[in-house]
Every structure is written in structure tokens, then in C-alpha cells.
Amino acid sequence: MTIPHPVRVGVLVIAATSFYTYVGQMVPQKEVLPPQETLIRADLTTADMVKVGREIMDGKGLCFTCHTIGKTGALRFPDLEGVDTRAQSRVPGLTDIEYFAQSIYEPEKFIVPGFNPGMPVINKPPIGLNDQEILCVIAYLQTLGGMPTVTLQTSHHYYTPAGAPGAAPAPATAAAPGGAPAPATVPAPGAAPGTPPAAPGTPPAAPGATPATPGTLPAAPAAAPAPVPPPKGTR
């Protein structure tokens, strides 16, 4: 029996499509969830900030998409191993904290020799870390070759905590048109006791999600000002 050509063509189309679908199933399967918004609790210690900072760098900050720790060879972006040691003297007149802050808020101002500009402004969308999150990141960066000294009351050239001497009142955050408040963070399985429950209607965290770091709370809507206690203005 001869199989009609249209049937053969149909089988070929289905077979080719199925083969490509199969190839698609063979590669690693990873679902990427939107970054969870975290609100930094006011009573975080420096040690807690280091943990939160590492978590932010891993997740919302997307830092490790480009940077590495402890890798050598031909790199596209600076490796962060021992970065605090270099940061203390990299730009004359800037402390390590000021240098890190400059790299995050104004990354084009100083480009590490041998590398091309490419670092995005981290406190603006699409990454959009807030000032407290950036302080946590700086705390973690200080551990790479130094001792963390940052607290939530630390001020630097780009940020002065509310209530600090010379601090201006925080401006109201304007929501982008069409931009809804950020969804509340959902406690992942295994979250620390005392973590408030998820907001109604929010999807559950994906299996295997990173457990919430102690000291972080579900986010308030993005437009809400962060409740930071009266600072001491230390650096």
C-alpha cells in the first residue's frame, strides 16, 4: 500500500516539530520568578545585613550574572574576590563604602582598568535596589577582603538616612503608569518563624526557592516609604 503524499508530509511536519520539542525538554528546565521584594527590618545587625546582602546579590540584584568571586582568567567584569582591600585605595579620597556606593549609584564614574563600561545603575529599574538594600550589599562586599562596618544608619554621598543631620524629607515615590505596587513577598517553605503569611491571592513560592533570610519581612507596596528608625549618622 502506498501512503499518500499529503499524509507523509503531515507525518514529517509532526515528526520534525516533535523532535525539536524533545530537544527543548532535554536542556535544563528552570523557571525564573520575578525578584522578591524585601523590606529591610530596622533592627538588622551588620552580620544580618551581610546575609541579606549576599541574598540580594544572588537574586534581585542580578550581580552574579556578570561578576564572579574567586575566578581568574579572561573575565568580562571584575572578579570580586578581595574587592574590599582594593576598594579602600582604588579612588583617592574615597573610603571603601564611598567607593562601593559610587560603583552602584554612578557606575560610569570610575571604570576598573582593563574592563569596558557596562555596569547598570543599580538603584534604578530594571534592578532598582533601594538604599537599604544597597547598604546590605555594601556590607557583604566589605566581607570580601575586609571587615563589614556598615549599619543601616550609615550614610554616604548618595544616601543619608531619614532624620540624619542634613537629611532632606523623603520625596513621595511616583508609580509608573501601568506599574502596580510590587507584590508582597511570599514566605518560602521553611521561612523563619514569625514571618507573616502571604497576601491573599499571591502565588506560592516555587519549590526549591531560597528560604527567607532572618531579618527580612514581606515587602510593603513599592510606593510606600521604608520605615527606617532615626539614624545616628555614622559612617
Binding site: 527543548g24 536542556v27 528546565q29
Partner: peptide, 13 residues
Amino acid sequence: FTPTLGFATRVVS
């Protein structure tokens, strides 16, 4: 969220 590549390839197919 960004779906898995497996899911994306099924939709493409």
C-alpha cells in the same frame, strides 16, 4: 515569571 524552556518549546511547537 519566565517559564521553563520545555514549556516554551511546547508552545512554539
